[in-house]
Simulated assay, not measured.
Amino acid sequence: MADGVAEGFSIGVLAARAGVTPGVLRTWENRFGFPRGERSASGHRRFSDVDVALVRQVLEVRDSGLPLQVAIDSVVRAQEAGEQRSAFAAAAEAVAGVRPLRLHRRALIAASHAVEDECLARGDRAVVLGAFQLGHRYASSRQRWEELGRTASWAAVVADFDAGTDLDADLAASPVRCQLPGDSPLRREWAVVCLSESYAALVVAWEVPAATGPPTYEAVISTHRGATTAAGRVLAGVVRAAGGDVPPVAARLLDVAAPVRATSAVDADRTWLRALAELDPR
Rank of each mutant, 00 (worst) to 15 (best):
Met1His: 11
Met1Lys: 10
Gly4Cys: 01
Gly4His: 10
Phe9Gly: 00
Ile11Cys: 00
Val13Lys: 02
Leu14Lys: 06
Ala16Pro: 03
Val20His: 03
Thr21Trp: 01
Pro22Ser: 01
Trp28Ala: 07
Asn30Tyr: 00
Phe32Met: 02
Phe32Cys: 00
Pro35Lys: 10
Arg36His: 04
Arg36Glu: 08
Arg39Lys: 09
Ala41Leu: 01
Ser42Arg: 09
His44Glu: 06
Arg46Pro: 02
Ser48Asn: 04
Asp49His: 08
Val50Phe: 05
Val50Ala: 12
Ala53Glu: 13
Leu54Ile: 00
Arg56Phe: 03
Gln57His: 08
Gln57Ser: 12
Val58Lys: 05
Val58Ile: 02
Glu60Cys: 10
Glu60Lys: 11
Glu60Tyr: 09
Val61Thr: 13
Arg62Ala: 09
Arg62Tyr: 11
Pro67Lys: 01
Leu68Thr: 12
Gln69Met: 02
Asp73His: 08
Ser74Lys: 05
Ser74Trp: 07
Arg77Phe: 04
Ala78Arg: 04
Ala78Thr: 03
Glu80Ala: 14
Ala81His: 05
Gly82Pro: 02
Gln84His: 06
Phe88Arg: 06
Phe88Thr: 07
Ala90Lys: 01
Ala92Thr: 06
Val95Gly: 12
Gly97Tyr: 08
Val98Ala: 14
Leu101Asn: 09
Leu101Met: 11
Arg105Met: 13
Ser112Leu: 14
His113Ala: 12
Glu118Gln: 14
Leu120Arg: 14
Leu120Met: 13
Gly123Pro: 09
Asp124Gly: 12
Val128Trp: 06
Val128Cys: 13
Gly130Thr: 14
Gln133Val: 10
Leu134Asp: 15
Tyr138Asn: 07
Ser141Asn: 13
Arg142Ile: 00
Arg142Val: 02
Glu146Tyr: 03
Arg150Val: 13
Ser153His: 13
Trp154Tyr: 14
Val158Gln: 11
Val158Arg: 11
Asp162Leu: 04
Ala163Phe: 00
Thr165Ala: 05
Leu167Trp: 08
Asp168Phe: 00
Ala169Asn: 07
Leu171Gln: 07
Ala172Thr: 09
Ala172Tyr: 03
Ala173Pro: 04
Ser174Tyr: 03
Leu180Phe: 05
Pro181His: 02
Pro181Lys: 02
Ser184Leu: 03
Arg187Tyr: 03
Arg187Cys: 03
Cys194Glu: 12
Leu195His: 09
Ser198Pro: 06
Ala200Phe: 12
Ala200Asp: 09
Leu202Met: 06
Leu202Cys: 07
Val203Asp: 10
Val204Trp: 12
Trp206Cys: 05
Glu207Arg: 15
Glu207Trp: 06
Ala211Gly: 15
Gly213Ala: 15
Pro214Glu: 08
Pro215Met: 04
Thr216Gln: 11
Ala219Met: 10
Val220Ala: 05
Ser222Thr: 15
His224Met: 08
Thr229Cys: 06
Ala230Pro: 04
Ala231Gln: 00
Gly232Ile: 07
Leu235Cys: 06
Ala236Ile: 01
Ala236Thr: 00
Arg240Pro: 00
Ala241Arg: 11
Val249His: 15
Ala250Gln: 12
Asp255Phe: 06
Val256Met: 13
Val256Gly: 08
Ala257His: 12
Ala258His: 13
Pro259Ile: 10
Val260Thr: 14
Arg261Phe: 06
Ser264Phe: 08
Ala265Glu: 15
Ala265Tyr: 09
Ala265Val: 15
Arg270Leu: 15
Arg270Tyr: 10
Leu273Arg: 13
Leu273Gln: 15
Glu278Ile: 11
Pro281Phe: 02
